[in-house]
Amino acid sequence: MTERGSAADQMLGGFADKLVSLTDEVLFADVWARPDLAARDRSLITIAALVAGGNTEQLPFHLNLGAQNGLTEKEMVEAITHLAFYTGWPRAMSAIASAKGTFHSDESAEGEPK
């Protein structure tokens, strides 16, 4: 949470306040805080679910959260690579492009500096 509010509040506050409230108070303050699964594991599961569902719009936030929760870039890339065989090549390629953009925003898709 920042002075300006959560990421959900910054994105949707004033437009979808109930969704912001559920995101902040139920999803992140309750579900993510449950003690029986480490935040690192929750991040890995969430990243896998987003890749499997083709939901790359939410991926950068969760890749960064995964890094905060102890996942390495290599681990996240390896998970996405592994998922290519289970979720489909196009979903994995879209996800890996999102990951590259998240972790290496100073490079273009062709590997040339921006």
Rank of each mutant, 00 (worst) to 15 (best):
E3R: 03
E3C: 09
E3A: 06
R4M: 14
G5L: 11
G5A: 08
S6M: 00
S6D: 02
S6L: 02
A8Y: 01
D9H: 13
Q10H: 10
Q10Y: 07
M11N: 08
M11F: 14
M11K: 09
G14I: 03
F15Q: 15
F15D: 11
A16G: 10
D17S: 11
D17A: 09
K18P: 07
L19D: 13
V20H: 00
L22A: 01
D24M: 00
E25T: 09
V26N: 08
L27H: 07
L27R: 02
D30K: 07
D30S: 10
V31K: 12
V31M: 15
W32S: 06
A33R: 13
A33I: 04
R34S: 10
R34Y: 11
D36E: 13
L37E: 12
L37W: 14
A38N: 12
A39M: 14
R40P: 03
R40K: 14
D41H: 15
D41R: 15
R42P: 08
R42H: 14
R42W: 13
L44Q: 12
L44M: 10
L44W: 07
I45K: 15
I45Q: 15
T46M: 11
A48E: 12
A48W: 13
A49G: 15
L50P: 06
L50N: 00
V51A: 05
V51P: 10
A52T: 09
A52F: 09
A52I: 08
A52V: 14
G53V: 14
N55E: 15
N55C: 13
T56R: 05
T56S: 02
E57A: 09
L59N: 02
L59G: 01
L59I: 08
P60C: 13
L63D: 05
N64F: 01
N64A: 14
N64Q: 10
N64H: 15
L65I: 11
L65V: 05
G66T: 08
G66I: 08
G66Q: 01
A67P: 04
A67I: 02
Q68W: 07
Q68V: 13
Q68N: 15
G70R: 05
L71G: 00
L71R: 04
T72D: 08
T72Q: 07
E73W: 07
E73V: 07
K74N: 10
E75P: 03
E75A: 11
E75W: 01
M76K: 01
V77C: 00
E78F: 06
A79D: 06
A79M: 11
A79H: 09
T81I: 01
T81P: 00
H82Y: 02
L83F: 03
A84I: 06
A84W: 02
A84T: 07
A84E: 02
F85Y: 13
F85G: 07
Y86E: 10
T87R: 04
P90R: 11
A92N: 02
M93L: 15
S94A: 13
S94K: 01
A95C: 13
A95Q: 05
I96Q: 05
A97K: 10
A97R: 03
A97V: 08
S98T: 04
A99E: 05
A99M: 04
A99R: 03
A99L: 00
K100Q: 01
G101Y: 04
F103K: 07
H104V: 04
H104D: 00
D106Y: 09
D106W: 11
E107V: 06
E107G: 02
S108V: 08
G111S: 01
P113K: 07
K114T: 10
